[in-house]
């Protein structure tokens, strides 16, 4: 792992009025540097709320606590809202799931990109516009001039998500959180969009946190993987080593996937064991 940018220790998120007695996120710890970290888990495992907590954009009813949540040594928990606004976009940014909903329906997509740039950079409209056009080209959009003045409903899902990537990378953040960036897209354009993201992240040496429920996808794009279940990290593992995962949940997830190289029939439905809820965490250091 490279020098850590983001350190999270014992992150907890509790929702006011929640009667299940279990918090949404319970003691999640990890570090990210200029690398690609994947967070996998099923719905409700707390992966998205973890991502939002890093930007302090959890819903108002959520209480976030942690022993430590630092960005480049700076404590985010005590950071003021004003300071957080400087960090958001400029240092830590986030790509949301569905461009149909995550772009403002009444603003030209170009204007939305320009805005993202001008929040953090002193630039006149013309310079910002040129930057935005360049950024659109960088996400492989042909005819950037024309796309610039389109409205979100006039672009396809894949193009929308590439616009989103352009918008979130234009202020040149250190870390980008991609929260299920391809779940809303057609299978055929998923890989294409991820490749664009991967290409830009590598070229700029940006840290990436890829949140997904798709274990295969994460394994093929990331260096390290956190497997989350019910608000906890059950296993942390190098992506290259995923095959040797030891936690029964990770194993169960792997076994539930169809394979091309051999016949698996029937696919196994993961059986959940209540002991995982508070059981041991499997980390890479113990594994070796």
């Amino acid at each position: 792992m490279t020098e850590p940018l983001l350190e999270v220790e014992n992150l907890r998120i509790r929702f006011a009025g929640n009667r299940t007695g279990r918090d949404a996120v319970r003691g999640v710890s990890f570090r990210v540097g200029r690398e690609k970290l994947g967070i996998v888990g099923e719905s409700g495992s707390g992966k998205s709320q973890t991502g939002r907590a890093l930007l302090k954009l959890t819903p108002r009813s959520a209480q976030v606590t942690a022993t430590r949540m630092r960005f480049r040594g700076e404590d985010l928990l005590t950071a003021s809202e004003r300071r957080m606004r400087e960090i958001r976009g400029r240092s830590i940014s986030m790509i949301l799931q569905d461009p149909k909903f995550s772009l403002n329906p009444l603003m030209k997509v170009g204007e939305q990109i320009v805005e993202a740039y001008r929040v953090h950079h002193q630039a006149d409209q013309k310079t910002a516009r040129e930057r935005a056009l360049k950024m659109l080209e960088a996400v492989h959009i042909r005819d950037a001039e024309r796309v610039f003045s389109l409205l979100p409903h006039e672009v396809s899902g894949g193009m929308g998500q590439r616009i989103m990537i352009a918008m979130m990378l234009i202020p040149e953040p250190d870390i980008i959180i991609a929260d299920e960036p391809t779940s809303a897209l057609d299978v055929t354009v998923r890989r294409q969009v991820l490749c664009v993201l991967n290409e830009l992240v590598e070229a700029r040496d940006t840290g990436l946190i890829l949140i997904s429920h798709d274990l295969n996808l994460v394994a093929s794009f990331c260096d390290r993987i956190l497997v989350m279940y019910s608000g906890r990290v059950l296993e942390e593992i190098e992506a290259s080593n995923l095959r040797n995962a030891r936690h029964p949940y990770t194993r169960a997830l792997l076994d539930s996937l169809p394979r091309l190289d051999r016949h698996v029939d029937p696919l196994r439905v993961p059986q959940r064991d209540p002991s995982w809820l508070d059981g041991p965490v499997f980390g890479p250091e113990e594994g070796s």
Binding site: I87, R88, G89, L96, F101, V119, M167, M168
Partner: peptide, 14 residues
Amino acid sequence: TQEYIITARVKGLS
């Protein structure tokens, strides 16, 4: 409650 509101906040808007 819409997603584009989160987007705007992620950008760093007040």
